[in-house]
Design a protein around this nucleic acid. Structure first.
Lengths: 146, 146
DNA sequence: TGGCTATACTTTCAAAATGCAAGCAAACAG
DNA sequence: CTGTTTGCTTGCATTTTGAAAGTATAGCCA
C-alpha cells in the first residue's frame, strides 16, 4: 500500500472508520469526488459550477488534501497551458460503494433529497455494471461544460 | 417520511449526497453512530470512553444534532435518574451499509487502519445476518462498560 | 505585438466551529 | 449529611470556514 499522508501524521485511533473520516469527514470532499465519479467534470472551474456554491479557497484546499491522501490525481491540461485536469485514482474509484450508500440513504430518509433519474436507474440496477462504468471513467451524467 | 429538521432549514442543493453530508459530514457523527450500531455503548459517558477523545461539548452538540435529524433517540435511563439512554432510530439503523462501506474502504486503503476481528468476520461474511443483528440491536462487540 | 478577457488559483479578514479545561447542579453512595 | 460521580454547560483560545477581492498567467483578437 502506498504512503498516504494523512494517516501518517497521527491517527486519533486505529479504527478504520475514524481514519476514513479524517480524510472524507467534511461537507465538501465527497461532493468533489461525486463530480469526478459520476460526471465529466475534471477542472477547477467545473467544480465551481456544480451548484452547491463551494468557494474557491475551500475548493483549492480540498483538491490539495484529496491529492495528498492519494484519492485524486492532478495533471497538466493537454490543450490549455494554465489548467489542470483532476481525476480519481484507484483509491478514489474504490469509494464508489460509499458514495452510493450515502446517496441512497439520504434519498430514502431526507425530505427533498433527489437524484437525477440517470443515477437512480443505474444505482438501483446492476451494481457491477455501474462499477465497470466508473472504473472505465465513463460518466453516468455527461454534461455540457462551459 | 417524517420531518427532519436539517433539510427543512435550507438545503444547498437537492442532491441526495449533499443532503446526506449536511447531516453526516463531520469527523464525529458517524463515530457516535458506530458505537451505537456495533457496540453496547448507549450513554454519554460510554461515548467519551471510546478512545478517539471527543470533548464533552462536541459530544453534547452532536447528540443533539443527530437527534434533531431523527437518526438517534434519547430516553431517560431506567435505573439512573440523571442519565439518558441513546439509541439508533430506524433512520440510524439504515446507515449500516454506509458505515460498512467507509470502514472497508479505509481498511483497504489507509495504512494503519484496523478493525476488530469480530467486525471484520461479520462484515465480510453474510451481510444479511449482520443487518439482522443491527436491526435487533444486538451488539457485534459487547463491551464491559465502566 | 499589444491589450483585453478568462481562468485558476491566493490572499484577506470576519465569522463560525472546535476543543481544552473548568464549572455546576442533580443523583447516588456511604 | 457529606463526598463522589455523572451529565452536561460555560469560557475562552485556537482553528477552520467562507465571501470577496486580488493576482498572475494563458489565450484571443486586432
Amino acid at each position: 500500500m502506498t504512503l498516504c499522508k494523512i494517516e501518517n501524521d497521527k491517527q486519533r485511533s486505529p479504527c478504520a472508520l475514524a481514519n476514513g473520516l479524517d480524510i472524507l469527514g467534511d461537507r465538501w470532499s465527497l461532493l468533489i469526488i461525486r463530480d469526478l465519479m459520476f460526471t465529466n467534470r475534471r477542472e477547477f472551474g467545473h467544480f465551481l459550477q456544480s451548484g452547491e456554491g463551494i468557494s474557491t479557497n475551500i475548493l483549492a484546499d480540498r483538491l490539495e488534501k484529496l491529492q495528498a491522501a492519494g484519492v485524486i490525481s492532478k495533471a497538466p491540461h493537454p490543450s490549455h497551458g494554465k489548467k489542470f485536469v483532476y481525476d480519481l485514482t484507484e483509491r478514489g474509484i474504490a469509494l464508489a460503494p460509499t458514495l452510493i450508500e450515502i446517496s441512497l440513504w439520504a434519498l430514502g430518509e431526507i425530505d427533498g433529497a433527489k437524484l437525477p433519474s440517470a443515477f437512480l436507474e443505474v444505482m438501483q440496477g446492476d451494481r457491477n455494471k455501474l462499477m465497470a462504468m466508473i472504473k472505465n471513467r465513463q460518466p453516468v451524467l455527461r454534461l455540457k461544460l462551459e
